[in-house]
Structure formats: structure tokens, C-alpha cells
Amino acid sequence: MKFGVVVFPGSNCDEDMFYALSQNLGVEVVKLWHKQHSLEGCDVVVLPGGFSYGDYLRSGAIARFSPIMDEVIEHANKGGIVFGICNGFQILTQAGLLPGALLHNSNQKFVCQNTFIKAEHTNSHFTNAFENRAYKIPVAHGEGRFFASEAALDEIEANNQVLFRYCDAHGNITEEANFNGTARNIAGIMNKQGNVFGMMPHPERAADAILGNTDGLAFFNSVLLATQNA
């Protein structure tokens, strides 16, 4: 099982993702430079957080034209697992691999804080190791408000594509827990086929016991479980 973390110019959570996968999870992982046209045989492709190309124009808008994105899209179309965190999620929506878009937070401010999320169901590659409780996972973004038309949202929900929603510490999905104005408290979604996933919270920031929070491991363990069963 081999993970590949794509490094765009301006990625700044690539190293954290690499560290979590290699040190906290102990899996094989390589970095994939955005200018290359090879995924180096990786089974799982990760688009990390950051400010790819400075996020000038719009978050993720330029990164999706990076050379490696051809291969990432091809990998996804073949059913390979791709997930994007934060800026990676934004890039996936810009590339059309995930529906919807991510807009500026409703208060127009960057927000960095611990948040709680809850898995909608455990019937996916990305949630199968989650329990029915709130998980403490940090966010850090200025553009994390998930947006889609009501019809599109209904369809996403009907297909069980919503995987995480923001909740309070007790797992209640409340308006107060929705700190950035995201549609229907949505924190993370997958595509219809179930192999591409994006979320705004950073599980790699909740993977090291030394930092006092390992709630993010459930996410990585889900992906590992999915690939083992594949």
C-alpha cells in the first residue's frame, strides 16, 4: 500500500501529511512533485492543504491545471482512491472530481480552531473506522464554506455522499457548531462512485499523541482498511 502526497507550489501541509502517514501511521508514502506526470505507482493520492499558487484568483483554481492533475484525474476515473484536505478539497472541486464549491467563510475571516465533526455513516472508504461520536479535528481555512445548489445538495445527500458534518462536543449537529456558514453543516463529501473524497478539517493535525489529540487516526485507519479490503 503506497500513498503519494502531491506537492504544489504553495502547499504547506504536505510535510504534515507526509509525517502523519510515515511516522504516525507507519505506511509507505512518497511526495509527488506537481510538475511530474507520474504517480509513481501510488495506490492512494493525497492532495494536501496549503495555499497552492498562493490561492491567487481562487483557492485551488490554478493548481488544478498542474501537470500532475492529468494523472490524478485518470487515477480517480479508474476508481483509485484520491482524497484532498482543505486546499486539496478546494482543488478537487475545481477539478470537477467533487461537486460543489468552497466559498469564503461567512464571517469573511480565516478561522483556525479545534472543531468537532461526526461521520454521517460508516459505509465508505473514508469513514469505516469511525464510531458514532464527535471527533475533535482542527480546521484552518479562509474559504471553507461548502456551497452547492439546493438541488445539488439534495442529490449529494440522497447518494449518501456527505461523510462529515460539524457538530458540538456531544455530537449534536447544531447551528452553533456551523462556524463558517457551510451548507447543511457539511465538512466533507465524497464523489458518487465513493473513491474521491474531500474535507476541510485536518486529520493529519490530530494524529500525533504528543499533541494530545489522535482523533484524526480514525480517518487514516478507514482509508487503510478500505485499501486492505480492496
Partner: peptide, 15 residues
């Protein structure tokens, strides 16, 4: 809250 205090996954004060 407007500063990313956690990138680098080394801030031991977060929790």
C-alpha cells in the same frame, strides 16, 4: 483564531 497556529503539527499547546 485568525492565525494558523497548528500547521507544522508541532504546537504542543493546541490541546
Amino acid at each position: 483564531k485568525q492565525y494558523d497556529s497548528m500547521v507544522g503539527t508541532a504546537n504542543m499547546n493546541t490541546n
